[in-house]
Each structure stands twice: as C-alpha cells, then as structure tokens.
Amino acid sequence: MDEQSRAILQRILRKLPGKKTQNTLRVWGCLSAEQLQDLDFTQPKWLLLENIISKCEESRLRLKDVTKLEMVYHVENPNQGTWHAYKLAEAEDEALSVDFTQFKEMFISHLEEVVQHVSIRMKKQEDDAVWIRIAWGDNFTKPNHLKPTYAVHYLQTPYVFILNLASKHKPFLYQALVLSTRHAAINEAHLTGRSLTALRDLLMKQYQQVFPNQNRTLKERNISPSHPNIDKEHAEVAERTRQMACEAFGDGAVPKLETAVYKLETRYRGGSSDAPGDRDELFRGVVKFSSPNLLESLRHCVSTGMSESPVTPLLSSITQKGRNYFVIAEKVPGAASQTPAHTT
C-alpha cells in the first residue's frame, strides 16, 4: 500500500463511529471473513485501527479499495458535512429512460473529456440512488483524494445532492450531470442541510404530509383524554391550530433541517402607517432560524400559539417549495401575482 492510500485509509478509519466499524468493514468487503474474525472490535480504537491497517497491508489493498471504503462510510453516514440540493430542469424526451449503465458511461466520458485528471467512482444503491465520488485534479496535478466531491442523484428524478464542491469545479460537474441525465439545465434548489435524507425527503415529499381535507383522520388519531374543565370550544381551536401547523410543516417525524435563512429586502413595516418610522426605502436584514430540528420547532411554535394564525407563506414555503434560503423582495406595485419568495 502506498503512502497516500495509507494516509487516506487512516483518515477514514478514524472517522468511523465505533459501533458501526464492524458492519462498515463487512459492507466494504475488501477484507476476508477470516481477517474480520481475527479483529477484536472491543479493543481501544487506536489499537483496532492499527490492526485493521496491517490487515489491509496484508491483503495488498490499493487506492481504489480505500476510496471504496470512503464511499461506504458516506453512504452509511449521510449526515456528515453540508449537503446542497440541486434540481435538473428542462428534461428531454429520453430523460425518463436513462438507466444506470447509460448514465455511468455518459457521465464518466463527459467529465473526462473536460478534466484531464479526474478519478470517478460510482455505485448504485438499493434505493435507486446513484452515489458518485469525484476526486479532482487538473492538467498538471493528480486527483486529490483528500478532498473528494460527492454527488447523489436519484435516477429518473430531477434531484441531485452535492457535498464538498469547490466553485472552480462547479461548471464541469454541472455539465456532466446535465448531459448524462438528458436535461438542459441545473439549478440550485436553495436547500442545504446536514442530513442528506432530510433534504431528499423534503424535496420528494417523503414525509407524513397533512392536507386540508384530511381533517377528520387527524382528529381521530389524536383523541386526547377528555377533561371536564377543558372547554370544547378551546379544544377545537387547539385542534385547528395543530392541524394548521401539521399542514404547514408535516406530521410525525419531519425531515431534519437545521436552518432557514431569509434575506429581507422589504419596506419597513414596523409601526402603524403614520408612525415616524415608516419610510419608503428598503429595510434590509437577514433572518436566520436555527434549531436541531427546524420543522419540528416551527410546528410546535405554531401549534402552541406562539405565532399568529394562519401560518405565513414565508414559513410554509420551506416545505411547500422545498427550500431553506429565500430572498424576500417587495412586491412590485400593481403586479397581480403574489411572490412571497422569489429566487435570486
């Protein structure tokens, strides 16, 4: 094993969570069953790592095996680093029929055409997600395996999620993605977060959504023990607020977003119309909401009456539009369409 491979191997092994190490190595599949059996996973981590590395040396593993382990690590821990969501646009007719082999061939050839030194690894997971690892180099340098970019694309959907993409590599990756998926454009979805799963669930609406006509089912599910002192009317109001909160932010376990950012470029709306503070110029600012689980916090905020009903479109846009970065500009006077959240 060369110096570089060993360095990368050490880095990945150190990142592996203790409990998952054994399983990750098994999924990786580069060490034989006997070698895995020889390892004592109750050892202190540093000792265990040394033993694993010597086993890898024994098996004469190469760089490509090491990068495979890195990908296994990211697939199993999709909540490391900051993921950015992208949306492919203007699908061509063949877009829906692109299969993995086709996609893989085209992606690699397109990327290798424009970047001389690039190392690509691609794997399709069971959930139809294609995981792509790209180590970038340029005309004079070898691919840098210490700072790879990860891209996850769900075949036949317009969604791509990207981790660690330097801006100088953006055009290359964009082009390769657009061409190999048979689309004409790719746009930032203005959705970022630490959990890849959450971003995917939010964009693909794979969480428990509540629609206005589901009124009754929700009520039946949440029968609270009747209490003589609770006024029926109050209960109804509370239930309505909860219903509204769930319609806006989802029910049950919601996708785990950490932040939502609003850039306000609106007129000052502080005082009453004749207050001295009212001005025609814009009142600029940035509002950042953050929480370990933003949607759950907002749902709680609305359902406990810490906010005025109905839920403002600014907040419900997070789920409705599947994004968490907004620029809020003043509505153009006279324009009929309501654009509470528009793209930069």
Partner: peptide, 17 residues
Amino acid sequence: MPTQPSLDIMYTVNPQD
C-alpha cells in the same frame, strides 16, 4: 423561543437602516 426543540431566531439588520 421556548419550542420543542428550542428555536433560535437571529435577526441581522443593515446598520444604516
């Protein structure tokens, strides 16, 4: 905000405004 889990709201205002 005392929500579950707690919600932080940070408002950065343009200094001139």
